[in-house]
Simulated scan of single mutants.
Amino acid sequence: MHHDSLELRQLTSPQMVDARLRHALIDCWVDVTNAGGAAGFPFPPIDAQQAAPALDAILTNLAPNTCRLLVALAEGEVVGWLNIRRDPFALIAHWGTLHHVQTHPRVRGRGIGVALMARARQVAREEMDLEHLHLAARGGVGLEHFYGRLGWKEIGRWPDALRLASGDDRDEILMILAPL
């Protein structure tokens, strides 16, 4: 995929999301999860009835200073998205967290995840005035290597913190990107 055909759209209020975009975000989340993606639903398969309330909770909280959605579109279709959040509590308001980082399975390996992560870094630094970003990744699927190539550092693990199934416990990998 040529990066010139990739559009990265930033959403900062619920009013920026029409019904078509909402459905496309839900469909992406369902497809990513059902393909084994670690994007917030640990027990596939899921359907739109499960993803919709979780997405709506994110959309309701969209606000320029505390919660943004970055959406990757290729030829007008949603091919990935992520959520940047900041807690407004003064003690920790200088950093944010990334949630639900995902690219659609049909476009993996084409640089969309890299482009989303680069834009998230830029938005966090230049528009949200954050100093660093945190994320938690599921162990056992190589995500720490993907993020590591983008400058993220592993700062710790919670061993066997995630139980995906009986006998399938995974580490939760804590990562930081600093400075932005």
Results as ranks from 00 to 15, higher is better:
residue 53 P to A: 12
residue 26 I to H: 05
residue 95 W to P: 06
residue 165 A to R: 11
residue 73 L to M: 03
residue 23 H to Y: 14
residue 92 I to D: 00
residue 24 A to L: 08
residue 140 G to A: 05
residue 130 L to P: 09
residue 96 G to N: 06
residue 65 N to Y: 11
residue 8 L to D: 01
residue 67 C to P: 11
residue 137 A to C: 08
residue 5 S to Y: 07
residue 160 D to L: 07
residue 135 L to R: 08
residue 83 N to F: 14
residue 28 C to M: 07
residue 6 L to Q: 03
residue 126 E to H: 09
residue 153 K to I: 15
residue 119 R to M: 03
residue 123 V to H: 12
residue 155 I to A: 12
residue 67 C to L: 08
residue 158 W to V: 12
residue 37 G to C: 02
residue 119 R to K: 00
residue 133 L to W: 03
residue 70 L to F: 05
residue 154 E to L: 13
residue 45 P to A: 00
residue 134 H to D: 10
residue 93 A to T: 14
residue 158 W to Y: 14
residue 32 V to S: 06
residue 165 A to V: 14
residue 24 A to R: 06
residue 174 L to P: 07
residue 167 G to K: 03
residue 170 R to T: 04
residue 161 A to K: 07
residue 112 I to R: 00
residue 150 L to P: 10
residue 134 H to T: 03
residue 59 L to D: 13
residue 104 H to I: 15
residue 17 V to K: 11
residue 144 E to N: 13
residue 174 L to Q: 11
residue 178 A to Y: 13
residue 142 G to Q: 07
residue 144 E to R: 09
residue 45 P to G: 00
residue 113 G to K: 04
residue 27 D to C: 05
residue 88 P to A: 00
residue 153 K to T: 15
residue 44 P to H: 15
residue 84 I to V: 08
residue 138 R to W: 14
residue 41 F to K: 01
residue 70 L to A: 05
residue 12 T to G: 01
residue 28 C to N: 06
residue 93 A to C: 12
residue 79 V to I: 15
residue 15 Q to D: 09
residue 160 D to S: 07
residue 100 H to G: 03
residue 64 P to F: 13
residue 78 V to P: 10
residue 7 E to T: 02
residue 10 Q to R: 06
residue 152 W to D: 05
residue 167 G to T: 01
residue 106 R to C: 03
residue 169 D to F: 07
residue 71 V to C: 09
residue 51 A to R: 02
residue 93 A to V: 14
residue 123 V to W: 08
residue 81 W to C: 00
residue 102 Q to F: 05
residue 113 G to H: 08
residue 21 L to P: 02
residue 166 S to W: 12
residue 52 A to W: 12
residue 177 L to V: 00
residue 99 H to W: 10
residue 178 A to K: 08
residue 108 R to H: 10
residue 103 T to L: 01
residue 161 A to Q: 04
residue 64 P to T: 05
residue 102 Q to S: 05
